[in-house]
């Protein structure tokens, strides 16, 4: 557990990190693995413990959400450009939501983080290092929980909860003959990329093949040690400095 925040690469030279007293917790994992459900439960649990929580999710920035939506509607946007749109969205959220919340001592729960961008970018032909460099301005999270699942467990879960989506199936890559084939190949590759990153980036692996409650218990046990006293309580009680 590291106390100080670090930039992932070159960082933002105009924004020092010394005032970030909150905790940044990223929940990673492939599409349909149940991240959003788990984050809702975590938020309640952390707030009940008296900490303020900010939830932030992929493509939810004020600046970019509309542009990304419209880019997905058309079919003239290539993967490299998508990676850059995601990076812009992330930068907007980092500077305008995540960093201010961390300065105020919040627990920030990030639904997906830069590792999702890495895995997606690596699906296209190209230089694997580029996307890692591009996200050099990101902050290294205090904790990354990786919801790990195998493709055979994932597929029925996705079908039950609304079906397979074109982009989540990597439709643009034409990996298979139909949506099912595409999804299986695409998400299978995504899972392999996440697994491979798990060690390099020190993910805490959570077995996501089990029930919602069991996943939640695993997550809480990983997160609990990070909820220490330097984090702002809600309501905040200021102790007067001793004279």
């Amino acid at each position: 557990m590291s106390a100080d925040k670090k930039y992932f690469g070159e960082g933002l030279p105009y924004r020092p990190l010394n005032r970030l007293k909150g905790k940044l917790i990223a929940i990673e994992g492939t599409d349909g693995v149940g991240r959003t459900t788990q984050i809702e439960l975590l938020k309640d649990w952390i707030e009940l413990k008296g900490h303020a929580v900010l939830e932030t999710g992929w493509t939810r920035s004020n600046l970019m959400s509309r542009a990304i939506q419209s880019a997905k509607m058309g079919n003239t946007v290539d993967r490299l450009t998508f990676s850059l749109l995601y990076a812009t969205d992330f930068a907007d959220r980092l500077e305008n939501q995540i960093m201010p919340a961390l300065e105020a001592g919040f627990i920030v729960l990030a639904d997906r983080y830069i590792y999702t961008a890495f895995a997606r970018d690596w699906m296209r032909e190209g230089d694997r290092k580029w996307i890692v460099d591009a996200f050099g301005f990101a902050i290294v999270p205090d904790l990354v929980c990786y919801l790990s699942v195998d493709i055979d467990t994932l597929i029925p879960r996705v079908i039950e909860s609304g079906g397979m989506d074109y982009w989540e199936s990597g439709g643009d890559l034409h990996l298979g003959e139909d949506l099912y084939d595409n999804f299986r190949k695409y998400q299978g590759r995504m899972i392999r990329e996440f697994d491979a990153m798990s060690e390099e980036y020190h993910f805490e692996k959570i077995d996501a093949r089990v029930s919602v409650d069991e996943i939640q218990q695993q997550l809480r046990s990983k997160i609990e040690p990070h909820l220490v006293k330097e984090v702002a309580k809600k309501p905040k009680i200021e102790t007067p400095p001793s004279l």
Binding site: N62, L63, L84, A87, T88, A91, F137
Partner: peptide, 14 residues
């Protein structure tokens, strides 16, 4: 006026 140096840069890269 919500652009930061980094989002400004990334938008132009996009």
């Amino acid at each position: 006026k919500i652009l930061t140096p980094t989002t400004f840069s990334l938008l132009h890269a996009s």
